[in-house]
Computed example of a mutant assay.
Amino acid sequence: MSVSSVAPQIVPKAAPTWRQSTSEPFVRIEQINKQFGDFTAVNNVSLDIYKNELFCLLGGSGSGKSTLLRMLAGFEKPTSGRILIDGVDMSNTPPWERPVNMMFQSYALFPHLSVAANVAFGLKREGLPSGEVQKRVADILDMVQLGHLAKRKPHMLSGGQRQRVALARSLVKRPKLLLLDEPLGALDKKLREETQFELMRLQEELGITFVVVTHDQEEAMTLATRIGVMNNGVIVQTAEPHEVYEYPNNRFVAEFIGNVNLFEGTVVGDERDSASIHCADTENLIHVDHGISCAPNQQVSVAIRPEKFRITREAPASLVNTTQGIVTEVAYMGSQSIYKVRLPSGKEVRITQPNVQRDADDRFTWDDHVYLAWDADSSVVLTS
């Protein structure tokens, strides 16, 4: 008797909650303002964050990101506006009554207490039974891979281990929302990269909504489900990491996220599915594969990421989306090489190329005359 095989049913993965029109935000920030005297730290910010997100607030010093985080925690009171968490208005709720915990950049561990005692501190203050405290502490230390170090004091730990103790202490109380203020800032580069993936694993495993404040663009791009880019107290763009990088909505975002080459030009043609920009620096026309919907002869900026360029010694067949110049700087970075090319106008352009081959005889070097080309969909036209 033969048994017919049945192909397994493939269930399509559900779209993230922030893409679903029916999803209700877990955190809703409504027209929040925060003033310190005459200084406006946060200016009319509205933002929705959804359940189980790992959301990053990204910005430079003084952008307002930490002030916004402290208002979420209840450490600062908004001048106007309101914050809702899980549908409840938190405007007049003190920090200790919010379903929120916060992990500070300094970690703030008690030096005289063991790892286990540090993690248990908040639970004991709540008066939980001793047996439950011990179980929850043991479970969370195992989750952050510190169970074998439970009896050590903080000074006996590495920086990465102290960071995980602080994280365990924040998570052991099972908050609905965890706020992290520059959580990896004290770690060296390699350990920071490793810990980023550890944070992502924990967040996914626990299903807790994380809001992370950072000034590190790479950290935000690695961690986040979505990024809110802040500047001068305002969120200037909120999007998934690849959207923020590939489709910045203004010049500030383009320059702040990663490296970018900006060319100033004048729109000389604007159709529904294409546009042409005259740029003195490139000498040739820049063609993009979408319309701009702008005024005739409008001045715009064209952003091109360094990795979008093709660099050759031979002149391209077409003059559109091409330019030429002289290599002035070369940096070998292992996985990639960085070149700076000076155009005839004097403008310097940054190009990155992957080092696919271990030994390449045709690598570019100083004073080489080269041609640069890019595709029509590699340019982003910025009108602001």
Score class of each variant (00 low, 15 high):
residue 66 S to V: 03
residue 83 I to D: 01
residue 117 A to H: 11
residue 364 F to Q: 03
residue 121 F to G: 01
residue 217 Q to N: 09
residue 325 G to A: 07
residue 245 Y to K: 01
residue 203 Q to L: 09
residue 294 C to P: 03
residue 10 I to L: 12
residue 297 N to G: 07
residue 382 L to F: 08
residue 330 V to K: 13
residue 216 D to M: 09
residue 314 E to D: 08
residue 233 G to Q: 02
residue 378 S to N: 12
residue 37 G to T: 08
residue 200 M to R: 09
residue 373 A to P: 06
residue 302 V to E: 01
residue 378 S to Y: 02
residue 101 N to R: 03
residue 3 V to Q: 15
residue 13 K to M: 11
residue 282 T to L: 11
residue 178 L to S: 12
residue 189 K to T: 15
residue 60 G to N: 11
residue 165 V to M: 10
residue 51 K to A: 15
residue 318 S to G: 06
residue 21 S to D: 10
residue 201 R to K: 14
residue 274 S to C: 08
residue 365 T to Y: 02
residue 1 M to I: 08
residue 43 N to A: 12
residue 378 S to W: 04
residue 343 L to K: 04
residue 271 E to N: 14
residue 9 Q to E: 14
residue 380 V to F: 00
residue 241 P to R: 07
residue 71 M to A: 02
residue 365 T to A: 12
residue 114 S to D: 13
residue 187 L to G: 07
residue 121 F to L: 11
residue 75 F to M: 11
residue 24 E to M: 15
residue 277 I to F: 09
residue 382 L to G: 02
residue 185 G to E: 02
residue 351 I to S: 03
residue 296 P to W: 06
residue 220 A to R: 00
residue 293 S to R: 10
residue 222 T to Q: 04
residue 253 V to R: 02
residue 58 L to Q: 06
residue 85 I to T: 02
residue 8 P to L: 11
residue 300 V to H: 05
residue 56 C to A: 15
residue 16 P to G: 07
residue 372 L to N: 00
residue 1 M to K: 11
residue 216 D to R: 10
residue 112 H to G: 09
residue 36 F to N: 07
residue 236 V to H: 01
residue 105 Q to W: 10
